[in-house]
Design a protein around this nucleic acid. Structure first.
Lengths: 161, 161
DNA sequence: GCGAAGCAAGACCAAAGCGGTCGGAGATGT
DNA sequence: ACATCTCCGACCGCTTTGGTCTTGCTTCGC
């Protein structure tokens, strides 16, 4: 029903990987954050290296990653894994798309006047946005399996139309 | 970021329209549910008639609508507007797609083993599903504007990873 | 200083999904 | 039985997406 592009998927995986490496390195020795190359990450997850490279470039341009050129270069997180949300990553890669074509970037509806379902859907849109905003990269590394499904099964969804 | 196809949009609009007409007809005279033609609905919302026709066909096949061929034929809701959720409509039109390509219809990940973000995203997926499941066609007709944004601004989003 | 390793940035391409159109098949009311 | 209205399935072009190739620039090791 709702699709997230493969690029965004890859982006999230890459960020998770970087976060893992970073915390790992920090625990071993408080040393310089070791900038993983795009190739390394691509190999770790078996995804096309050049495609990932392009995604990482995008994320770097968005300010989520910092790139380091030259030999032994690579990418590292621009911020703490705890301060990067899934929403930011997706937005950076897929752009500011919305759940419905009604809600354009200008807030105007193509079918202005006729489209009467805009408002309810906008609220769904906002809910999803909040949902993704609540997920941080640090939440992805080692799921920790805290209360597996209780919150979902429960009545967390109570959108007021 | 997350996109809902135009078809699903149209489908929701059409169902809303049918729900309106149905309750309207019921209030005027408790008469036979008047089967609106695809053309009528399309004209009401200024959307391509033949495209809407195809969408309505899909919805009919999914059991959400009943079609009535021949002169003065058309479509009418198969169930009460209160018993049809937005999720059903979207699923019927866009198919059982998922937020991430990792979560296929078989539940297996293309990158089995490597993809480690599957589980958190699946929960997001379920949350969105629940969200849409909570919206009924009857909620769309005349938004009623009950507590406009309180529920959203509040802490409704508390997905447990 | 030179060359290799790695990022950066652009064009480019194939496949798939989406939006939209057309001509027929079938039912209905007269 | 006919004309008409509607549903229905096949068809088609376009945009987006996923992915590749090429070129250039920057930095590090020697």
């Amino acid at each position: 029903m709702l699709r997230l592009t493969k690029k965004a998927d890859y982006g999230l995986m890459a960020l998770k990987y970087l976060a893992e490496q970073q915390t790992l390195a920090a625990s071993i020795r408080n040393g310089a954050n070791p900038a993983q190359s795009a190739k390394d990450i691509a190999e770790a997850y078996h995804i096309p290296p050049q495609l990932l490279a392009k995604i990482l470039q995008t994320l770097a341009k968005a300010g989520l990653l910092v790139s380091h050129a030259g030999t032994n270069g690579g990418y590292s997180l621009a911020r703490s894994a705890h301060d990067i949300t899934a929403f930011e990553v997706i937005r950076a890669i897929d752009g500011p798309l919305f759940i419905t074509s009604c809600i354009t970037i200008h807030g105007t509806c193509d079918l202005a006047g006729h489209c009467t379902i805009k408002e309810p859907l906008r609220k769904v849109n906002d809910s999803i946005k909040d949902l993704l905003n609540g997920i941080r990269i640090s939440d992805l590394i080692d799921p920790a399996e805290t209360n597996p499904s209780a919150a979902l099964a429960g009545g967390l969804v109570s959108i007021g139309l």
